[in-house]
Structure formats: structure tokens, C-alpha cells
Amino acid sequence: MADNKKAAERRRTNSSSSSSSSSSSSSGSSSSGSRSSSSSSSSRSRSRSPTRRREVRGRRSRSRSANRSPVRGFARAERGGRRSPSPQRRRRSPSPIRRRDRSGSRGRRRSPVAARRASPRRSPSPSKRVCLRNLSKNVQKGHIEEIFSTYGAIKVIDLPVDRSHPYLHRGVCYLEFENLEDAEKSIKYMDGGQIDGLHISVEQSVNRSNYSRRSPPRRRSPIGRKSPPGRRFSRSPRRRASPPGGRSSGANSQPLGPSRFNRASRSRSPPTRRGRSRS
């Protein structure tokens, strides 16, 4: 890993020195947001693994902290404050260190970007999407729009429908606001609030990939053949029954053999009672 790091660093210094004229000039004038974004894209293409990048960052900070730790600390703590110190430093630093410094400033600039990119996964702060839970069936899209548009413009309202009741929803809603602050505001004000006599929860929505990741387990259940016996209610037993009889819908609706008993146990009246008690 040390070799890796070294190699990465070397590569970076090389690349930065090769593109030194442009990068130094632009960073010398100001390390603006647009610039950092461009560097982020380049960094993404250059080094793939985030772990390595992070380690490089950590190591560099250690090496540099010998020089000027306080400024660094500031730059670390608040992203906004990072900009003013960097030109200063450049002015102060003599040329041999400069190259390292330049690469370092790149690395540092990259690091907040990396953090920003990684954070939706780790900490649920910067997302415009919020997720509402525990909505009653009386609540409709219009209600949600009315309630939540007080916090800002809403881009998307996603109210997934119940699978077997297409005119009802599942009690979950995904909202996307135009602005991040509005999403945060809605969470601040509406989490734990009441709609239609129920306490709803408003939270940062995990990003889309996470949301879709929730469905595979359902699909996977027939594969996990000897899946938990406690999940009598799930679809897996029915699927299990269908392959011998052919997978047609007719086979599903009229299962053969012992599966019929399974079905009977799962049949009309008990599920409601169970379902009711579950919630």
C-alpha cells in the first residue's frame, strides 16, 4: 500500500507539474468552485479507489502539518475557509516545496469533493430527496404537495402504489425538492409531525440506488429455497410450489398437492388478522 501511495503521489505530482501552467495559474488566481469541480472529475478518472485517495490525503496532511498545521486545521474544519489560506500559502512557499504544495492543494481540494460525493452514502445530509413514512391511506399526492410545498418548490413526488391496490399507496412517499435547504427544512419541521392523525416520519432519502436495492431480496426469495420458515407469509412458498407444476399463472392460482395446504393456511381470513396485528 505504501508503494501504491507513493506511486499515486508521484503520478499526481507528475501530472500536476505537467499541467502546471494551467493549474498553477488558475489556482493562483482563485480556487473557485468551478475549478474544484473540474479537478474532481479529473481526479475521478485518474484514480478509482477512494480508499487510496483518502490515504494519500491523510499522509499528505501529516507531512504538511509539520509546515503549517494551524492553517491546515482550519482548511480541514470548514470547507469554506479553505480558499483564503491557499493563496497565502502559495505566496509563502519557496519553489521546491511548491510543486509538492501544488499537488497537495490539488489533493486537498479533491478531498472535500470526495467527501461530498461519499457522504450521501455514509451520512444522510446532502440530498434533496426526502422520504415520508407512515402516511395514511387517505393522504394523496395533492395533500403532500400542499403540505410540503410550504417548505419549497417540489420537483418530484413519488408515491408508490400498493401492488394489489393500484389506487392506494404503500404509506411511503419520496419527495424531491428543488433545493437542498428546503429538503432539510421539511425534515426539520415535518419529521414527527402529524398528517391525518398519524405521526409521519420525514427523513433523508437514501439515494435511488439504495431504494432499488431494496427490491432484490424479494426477487431473491425463491432462490433462497430453504428460506426462513418464519416467513410463512412471503411469496416464496408459492413459487416453490410452482416449478413442478409449470410456472404458468394458472399453476399459481391453483397450486398442486401439499402446497394447497400451505395456501389454505395462508388464505383469506388469517392473513388479515396477522397483517393487522403486525402493524
Binding site: K137, D162, S164, H165, S269, P271, T272
Partner: peptide, 13 residues
């Protein structure tokens, strides 16, 4: 009257 979870019908209790 409550919607049945597993079928498109409603149930009455």
C-alpha cells in the same frame, strides 16, 4: 372495510 394485503379485494370485519 380494509384492503386485503395480498389481493385486490377488500375485506370486511
Amino acid at each position: 372495510i380494509t384492503p386485503d394485503r395480498s389481493s385486490p379485494r377488500f375485506l370486511s370485519r
